[in-house]
């Protein structure tokens, strides 16, 4: 069984890797590319900790075969900040103490970034439904929702 060669762009960098056909994009990001920011909470699409954007579309990287990323762009949590500058969402999660253990945080960031790109002025209900696939067991979501709403407000103002 031979490996598959994949050329892709991850957080703006051209990346090539060899993968097995059954490996997921999450496996490859974490085990071959060395980007451990995306987390595996379930491996079955239920928790959202592995969220990435694939060609700009929010997906669970545990539900994408690594081979499918050929020719595509992948954005992970490692690519959200620009150099030393945190993204507004990152800053707002910190300001609102919207993380306790932080294992869900990479997924929450990727998902809420995708939300605000599509809908800069979401209601609380819209934020809650958009993030329903991002499980957080620590916070009860309250501070996360506040942080995302606050980030949206600031990004609209800017």
């Amino acid at each position: 069984m031979s490996k598959i060669h994949v050329s892709t762009s991850i957080n703006g960098d051209a990346v090539e890797y060899l993968c097995e056909p059954e490996e997921t994009l999450l496996d490859v990001l974490r085990n071959r590319v060395g980007l451990t920011g995306a987390k595996e909470g379930c491996g079955s699409g239920d928790c959202g900790a592995c969220s990435v954007a694939l060609d700009g579309r929010l997906v669970c990287s545990c539900l994408v075969l690594a081979a499918e990323a050929e020719g595509k762009t992948v954005s992970t949590v490692e690519g959200i900040a620009e150099g030393e500058n945190l993204h507004v969402l990152q800053q707002k999660l910190l300001d609102h103490a919207a993380l306790q253990c932080g294992i869900c945080t990479p997924g929450i960031l990727i998902a809420s970034k995708a939300l605000l790109e599509k809908n800069p002025d979401p209601t609380e209900t819209e934020v809650r439904y958009w993030l329903a696939g991002n499980l957080c067991r620590c916070t009860g979501y309250d501070k996360i929702i506040r942080a995302v709403m606050d980030a949206a407000a600031e990004m609209r103002g800017a």
């Binding site: 969220s51 929010l58 669970c60 539900l63």
Partner: peptide, 9 residues
């Protein structure tokens, strides 16, 4: 069906 993430696929 599923989450926003699942909807993407």
């Amino acid at each position: 069906i599923g989450s926003t993430q699942v909807q993407g696929r």
